[in-house]
Amino acid sequence: MLNLVLFGPPGAGKGTQSERIRDHYGLIHLSTGDIFRANIKGETELGKEAKSYIDKGELVPDSLTIKLLESEVDKHQDANGFIFDGFPRTVNQAEALDKFLARKQTEVTKMVALEVEEEELIKRLLERGKESGRADDQNEGIIRNRIEEYQKKTAPLKDYYRNQDKFESIDGVGEIDEITNRLYHAIEKK
Rank of each mutant, 00 (worst) to 15 (best):
L2Y: 03
L4P: 03
A12Y: 00
K14Y: 06
S18V: 00
R20M: 15
H24T: 13
L27H: 01
S31N: 07
D34R: 10
D34S: 09
E43T: 11
E45H: 12
A50N: 04
A50R: 06
S52K: 12
S52Y: 07
Y53A: 10
I54D: 07
I54F: 01
K56M: 08
G57M: 14
L59E: 05
V60G: 05
V60F: 07
P61A: 12
S63G: 13
L64S: 04
I66F: 08
K67L: 11
L68A: 14
E72N: 08
E72Y: 11
K75C: 08
H76Y: 15
Q77I: 10
Q77P: 10
N80W: 09
G81N: 13
F82A: 04
D85S: 07
F87T: 04
P88N: 09
R89K: 12
T90Y: 13
A96H: 06
R103H: 13
V108E: 13
T109S: 14
T109Y: 03
K110Y: 07
M111H: 07
E115R: 12
E115P: 02
E115K: 13
E117W: 09
E117F: 05
L121K: 10
I122F: 02
I122W: 03
L125P: 12
E127T: 14
R128P: 02
E131L: 13
R134G: 06
R134Y: 07
A135T: 15
D136W: 07
I142P: 02
R144A: 06
N145I: 02
R146M: 01
I147Y: 05
Y150P: 06
T154W: 00
L157P: 10
K158R: 11
Y161A: 11
Y161F: 14
Q164V: 04
S169H: 01
D171K: 03
G172I: 00
D177K: 07
T180F: 15
R182N: 14
